[in-house]
Structure formats: structure tokens, C-alpha cells
């Protein structure tokens, strides 16, 4: 055999090459998508600003600066986003509110994702009567007007942060369960599932080790749709006065406040609304990029 220098070089190069999982390949594909990548960066900045920013700003979100009441946004003073009629710094309030909104969004998505995946995968894999019963339960949940439940819970149990998350999660896993079930139905017919059964793997083992990893792509993409949905739901609840309670704040609460003073102090609405929109857009773009990246089958 002719061992040319180039072949030895290529084998030498091949040796340390790391093995890449399908998800890793999708991620590399995702990095090539400029819009999605830019969105991810902006999103990252917003998230970091919301969680870390308030630590570096001198103002407490509830602190009043009586020397600067209702001033519009300015780069000259220390209130870049302006202040409200109580002299509270809007930038700090927007960031602190963003933290609550994002926390609700992420926590809600996590909880709804866990329930949705478990429910959908079990229902889809076992099939038959179990599937029918589990999906009818989902249908029944759909029929319940969640706003009504939310209003009831908030009025009866008080406006607490965990209650908001709980109420929203309790209803937002339904879509996830349906999507996951659909995907599981098609996965179930794949030969590697038969192969796993022929290996003697138990039903829970198949669902956990063979179905769920294959669902990750769909789940990740769908989660990016869920996050804005939940952030928006929280905003709606807050806008109706059912969200988190003062002095805690969220984007929804801020937008609600701002909307009432739209004519005199438009920045109170504008700043949090823009932040909310940018965030939602970015999440959607990221989701779009993820979908494209995961779409290309079997590289």
C-alpha cells in the first residue's frame, strides 16, 4: 500500500476528532444562521441585564428620588429611562420587572415542558386505551377557560409569584403534550424502538432512554414558542391586575401602569413595551433558527 504523506496526515487529524451527537451537529448548523445568532446574543444581553443589572445600579426599584419626579428619559442624569410619578427609576424597574417576567417564562416553560413531555410520550408510546384517556383529559383541560381559573386562584389565594407560575404552567403543558405525543407516535414505528423491545427493555426504559432523547429537538423548538406565550400570559394577568404584587413588578405590571399614563408620560409604556417586544422577537427568531437547524434529517 502506498502511504503518502497526505493520508498519514489525514489519519493523524482524524484521530483526535471528537464524536458529534445529532444535537451538537444541529447546534453548529444553528450558529451559521445570522439572524438567530444575533437574536441569541441580544437575548443573552437582556437576560444578563435583567438578572445582574439591578445589582450594579445604585437605585432600588422601589426607591423614590423625590428630586426627579416624572422626568422623561435622558442620558444626562442617572435616570436613563426616566422616572415615574413617584420618582422611581424606570430602567431599574424595567430590569427588575424583566427578571420576574423571564423567571415566570422560563420556570413556566420548564414545568410545562416536563409535564408535557412525560404526558405526551407516555400517551403516545403506550397508545390504545391509555392514549385515548390521557388525550381526552388534555381535551377537557383545553375546554376550561384558564383566565377564569387564574382569576379565581389569584383572588382566593392571593397574588403570589409562585401562584402565577403554577397557574400558567398548569395550562401551558397541553400544547407540549400534544406535540410530543404526535412525535412519539411516529417514533414508535421506527425500527430502533422494536430493536429496544427485542432487547428486553421495559416500557419506562424505552420511553426514557429511547423516545425522550429523540424528542429533544421538537421540545427545544416548541419551548421557544412556549416562553413568549407564558411571558405574554403573565403580562396579560398583570395587566388585569392579577399578576405579581407591588413592590414586585413585571413587564406586564409596568405596561399596565404606563398605559394609564400614556398621554402625560408615554415613556412609562414605551420602555417596558419595547423590552418585551424585543425579547419576544428574539426568542421567536432563536426558535426559528433552531427549527431550521434541527430540520435537516440525518446528516
Amino acid at each position: 500500500m502506498n502511504t503518502s504523506p497526505s493520508t498519514t496526515a489525514s489519519t493523524a487529524n482524524a484521530a483526535p476528532r471528537r464524536s458529534r451527537s445529532p444535537l451538537e451537529l444541529a447546534f453548529r448548523q444553528f450558529l451559521r444562521n445570522r439572524a438567530a445568532l444575533a437574536s441569541l446574543v441580544i437575548l443573552g444581553i437582556i437576560v444578563i441585564a435583567c438578572f445582574v443589572g439591578p445589582l450594579f445600579l445604585t437605585n432600588d426599584p422601589a426607591a423614590n428620588d423625590w428630586g426627579a419626579i416624572s422626568i422623561p428619559p435622558t442620558l444626562l442624569g442617572q435616570h436613563w429611562f426616566g422616572t415615574d410619578e413617584l420618582g422611581r427609576d424606570l430602567l431599574v424597574r424595567t430590569l427588575a420587572g424583566g427578571r420576574v417576567s423571564l423567571e415566570v417564562g422560563l420556570l413556566g416553560t420548564l414545568v410545562s415542558g416536563l409535564i408535557g413531555v412525560a404526558w405526551g410520550a407516555t400517551s403516545g408510546y403506550i397508545g390504545g386505551r391509555t392514549d385515548a384517556v390521557m388525550m381526552r383529559i388534555v381535551d377537557m383541560m383545553y375546554a376550561i377557560p384558564y383566565m377564569l381559573i387564574a382569576i379565581l386562584m389569584m383572588t382566593l389565594l392571593g397574588r403570589a409569584f409562585y401562584l402565577v407560575v403554577l397557574t400558567i404552567s398548569a395550562f401551558s403543558w397541553l400544547d407540549m403534550a400534544r406535540v410530543v405525543r404526535g412525535q412519539t407516535l411516529s417514533l414508535r414505528t421506527r425500527e430502533f424502538i422494536d430493536a429496544a423491545r427485542a432487547t428486553g427493555v421495559s416500557t419506562p426504559g424505552i420511553i426514557l432512554r429511547h423516545i425522550v432523547p429523540n424528542l429533544l429537538g421538537v421540545v427545544v423548538v416548541y419551548a421557544t414558542v412556549t416562553v413568549p406565550g407564558i411571558v405574554l400570559t403573565e403580562s396579560v394577568l398583570s395587566f388585569l391586575g392579577l399578576g405579581v404584587q407591588e413592590p414586585m413588578t413585571s413587564w406586564g405590571v409596568l405596561i399596565n401602569d404606563g398605559a394609564q399614563k400614556l398621554e402625560s408620560m408615554p415613556w412609562l409604556l414605551l420602555c417596558p413595551a419595547v423590552m418585551l417586544c424585543v425579547t419576544l422577537y428574539c426568542v421567536n427568531f432563536v426558535g426559528d433558527g433552531l427549527r431550521d437547524a434541527l430540520d435537516t434529517k440525518e446528516r
Binding site: L23, F192, A195, A196, R197, A198, G200, H210, P213
Partner: peptide
């Protein structure tokens, strides 16, 4: 099954789990 009786499927492209 999987212990005393093993099985090999037709299409190796689909009988292995792509994510493991």
C-alpha cells in the same frame, strides 16, 4: 428477549437509535 434470543433487523439505518 435480548438475552437468550437476540434479534437483528432489516435496516441498520433505522434500527439504531440516532441519538445514542
Amino acid at each position: 428477549r435480548g438475552d437468550r434470543i437476540g434479534m437483528v433487523f432489516q435496516d441498520p439505518m433505522t434500527s439504531l437509535n440516532p441519538f445514542l
